[in-house]
Design a protein around this nucleic acid. Sequence first.
DNA 1: GTCTATATATAGATAGAC
DNA 2: GTCTATCTATATATAGAC
Lengths: 192, 192
Amino acid sequence: MSAVKTSTKEKIVLLATELIETKGYSGFSYQDISDRLNIKKASIHYHFPAKEDLGLAVFDAFVQGIDDFIKKLDFDRMSPTAKLAEYFRYHAEATLDCNKISCIGAMTSEWNVLPERLRERIDKFNQWHAAFIVDILKEGVKSGEFRPFGSLEEQALFIIASTKGALLMARERKSTELYHAVARQIMGCLKG
Amino acid sequence: MSAVKTSTKEKIVLLATELIETKGYSGFSYQDISDRLNIKKASIHYHFPAKEDLGLAVFDAFVQGIDDFIKKLDFDRMSPTAKLAEYFRYHAEATLDCNKISCIGAMTSEWNVLPERLRERIDKFNQWHAAFIVDILKEGVKSGEFRPFGSLEEQALFIIASTKGALLMARERKSTELYHAVARQIMGCLKG
DNA sequence: GTCTATATATAGATAGAC
DNA sequence: GTCTATCTATATATAGAC
């Protein structure tokens, strides 16, 4: 872990991510960032000319973060149950301060007002996301850890939907526990 | 069914509901309404001085709509399974044009940027909502129709979360079928 | 790369005529 | 109850100095 300085550009993306996860894409402004980083709005526009550019950078960093998370875990050697547990643990981080939902959940919530390029990238991610869960389920059914119900594709969408909804409700109720309760329920359904 | 004229005030609430369910509370403006109803912004302010007032009216109408829906069904005589099926059918209406989520889901998605009075009312509704589902579950477990897993309170939150997430994803994917698939999954979990 | 200054559009809201 | 006109605040964005 080398002591790498965080550039202004990186700081902007990190803060914008937090703002999107708390207030939403249309809910945050360059002024919010300007205030908290003590830089002027024009400086943000230097790094990200349009808000859309910043939105895309935030989303790309989010996807990269997931990639890193998976790589760090030595995912391939884990059991399907352990993989799903990590999936839930990953999302749990958003609920720690009871003020955030996931980046993808926030953006999905604002679907109809998002710039087209952002929607395209979200669509692409969602395809990957569903396939990722289907793979885990396939493996788990094969090993006898999971009980299949309906198609695995449907089951995957169900898990993703429940997780998104749980994050929304946990933020609203200011309850990390609510999120964990729902995660337990999902796991319970899979285990039959 | 008498031919009752829809007042301007009612038209505003109906359209605002649709706008919130498609674009979100912060995503819609008085101008949107002005354009589509061919009235001036000032006229909307006459009926609803502040946007918050309109938001509250929309939410109250939403709650009233649920009340009417339940009353119309003769809910008390229905089986727990039928009650839940109606619950899913009620939410399915939002997905028909693949462009909406529920009013409560939309508002929950924007939790941190909502006016305080609206949040209070949402909180109150959510308490009722969870208790409503718990009652159905209790009855279903008693009759042997449902399989309990964890506490009934947790199971209720799980159903609510899944439904909210399913609506979000159905809007994004423009797929009514996605919503129904998730609803089937939930029912499958309950039936064991 | 950051600043000051400014442009332009839109949002929420009010005053007062009709 | 609806209109015209106007106000104020804020949002996104650009020009050009340092």
